[in-house]
Amino acid sequence: MGNMELLTGVLSRTGDVIEGVGGDQFGLPTPCDDYDVEALINHIVGWVHVFEAGCHNRTYEGDASAYRCGADPASEFREAAAGLVAGWEQYGFDREVSVTGGRLPAEQVFNMTVMEYLTHGWDLATATGQTVPYTEQEATEALARAEATLPPQYRGENMPFGAIVPVAEHASAVDRMVAFMGRAPESALRSS
Rank of each mutant, 00 (worst) to 15 (best):
E186W: 12
L189R: 11
N3C: 08
R190N: 10
S191D: 14
F51R: 00
E107S: 13
A82Y: 01
G22H: 05
C32N: 13
E141L: 12
Y117Q: 01
H56K: 14
W47N: 02
A82L: 07
E169N: 09
Q25R: 07
A179D: 02
L11R: 03
L40A: 10
H170P: 03
S65T: 04
A144S: 14
D123K: 09
V174N: 06
E89Y: 02
G62I: 03
M1K: 11
T8I: 12
G92Q: 05
Y117D: 01
F161N: 06
V167D: 02
R78G: 08
Q137H: 14
I41V: 08
D94V: 13
L7P: 04
M177H: 10
G102W: 11
G129C: 07
F26T: 03
G182F: 12
R58M: 02
A171M: 05
L143R: 15
E79P: 11
L28D: 09
L84Y: 01
P133R: 13
V167Y: 01
A163E: 15
A168S: 06
F51H: 01
S75G: 10
Q90L: 11
P166Q: 09
G54K: 01
Y91T: 03
P31T: 10
D72W: 09
V178N: 12
V10H: 02
R95E: 07
Y67F: 15
L143V: 15
G20R: 06
S65D: 09
T128M: 08
W88I: 05
S191Y: 11
P151I: 07
A80H: 00
A125F: 05
E52M: 07
S65P: 01
D24G: 08
R68V: 14
E96A: 06
F161C: 10
T113C: 08
T126L: 04
F51L: 04
E141M: 14
Y35Q: 01
A64P: 00
